[in-house]
Write a protein that binds this DNA or RNA. Structure first.
Lengths: 124, 124
DNA sequence: ACACAGTACTATACGTTACACAATACCTGA
DNA sequence: TCAGGTATTGTGTAACGTATAGTACTGTGT
């Protein structure tokens, strides 16, 4: 999986979970990794950054099954940031959609077109 | 606009245009910039990278209105790469969609939920 | 003839972010 | 006590968008 795709979007995904409920890092990682390929080395830094920037705050709770958990809770600033990021993301997606889906969208269409074009110009 | 969003996707967008027809850099930049915010400093490096990796090849043509144009043409390898990237992108998007669109999707819904949650726990 | 705008491309340096690698620490069950 | 699941932190690296700057060619207005 192209790791570049995740840049910027992972943060939004984390914010999306925190907009629902307070969560601790490990749980967030599990939730995210059910849908996208992501590990602890990636998510924890995001959580630290969000906190550093005032988008989230933390509190510790003890756990019966392991080390204490650091819960992250979204601030109002964080929610506003989340809304803004969502907007930018969907605007960006709309633009990309326009570019990727001109003419034939399906692979067969694309392949037929490409093949037709390359064959008449002695490519090989 | 979050510049991070573009990582990896810009390359796909360029490939999408080249899958249709041979194009020169300046034209590609114009086509892309109608839909997403992107400049020459970003696109030319991508074109060079694509060529370096064998996904595109180039040929020069003279132009009546300016410097000679370097046309980029997609190789078979490039087309295969394009198809693969498209697949990965849509798989990634599907995952992100699952995460971002659980429960209420619209801003009003999200806001109502967030507000309700924060108000009952003496935030402020 | 010269400045200038538009066209077209190249090169260097930097910042952000995902992530590999590594370490720490707590608890439970065999 | 040792493995394994839980839970977090820190360091270093690589990719890629992009700001900045520069080269070079053509046609037009003055």
């Amino acid at each position: 999986m192209n790791t570049q795709f995740k840049r910027g979007i992972l943060e939004i995904c984390v914010l999306a979970l925190l907009a629902e409920n307070d969560q601790y890092g490990y749980a967030i990682i599990h939730a995210l990794s059910q849908h996208i390929d992501v590990g602890e080395n990636t998510v924890y830094p995001i959580l630290r950054r969000l906190t550093k920037e005032g988008y989230t705050e933390t509190y510790l709770t003890e756990s019966k099954a392991g080390a204490p958990r650091k819960y992250y809770t979204m601030t109002k600033l964080g929610f506003a940031h989340y809304m803004k990021q969502r907007d930018e993301w969907s605007a960006f997606l709309a633009g990309v959609y326009q570019i990727l889906n001109r003419g034939g969208k399906k692979h067969e269409d694309l392949y037929r077109r490409f093949k037709a074009r390359t064959e008449k110009t002695t490519t090989e």
